[in-house]
Design a protein around this nucleic acid. Sequence first.
DNA 1: TTTCTTACA
DNA 2: TGTAAGTA
Length: 134
Amino acid sequence: MRIGELSERTNTSRRLLRYYEEQGLIISDRCANGYRNYDDRLVDRVLQIRGLLDAGLPTRIIKQILPCLDKPRNIYFPDATPEMIATLEHERDRMTERINCLTRNRDAIADYLDAVLVRRDNRPHAAAEASTTS
DNA sequence: TTTCTTACA
DNA sequence: TGTAAGTA
């Protein structure tokens, strides 16, 4: 498929797809006219890259660990250099920290929402609620 | 019409 | 990342 289709299927701009390729995150072959041609499997790969990017990983790290995250991973794991292990452990911890941070902020927002909504429900104009309660 | 590259914000 | 220009 050409870049336009991959773009639609992954909800990723053409600009970004070319950038990912430039960073070595994905590859493509070229048609006679110079147009990029992508394998169907790139759809999942791009989605995975976006997920990693959302998780806060920089593209240079993603480029390193992407091959470690491929499907038939557990069977063959020859890509376990000490450096790679260290990188993965570091990123794993970073993600955990990020998750904790997100959790705290989500809870803070949830608490605020609860307080605001409860107060609103207890207001006098809430006739139904008031009569039922008293 | 779609894609390409390069360059600027 | 988006957008513009000039092509093929």
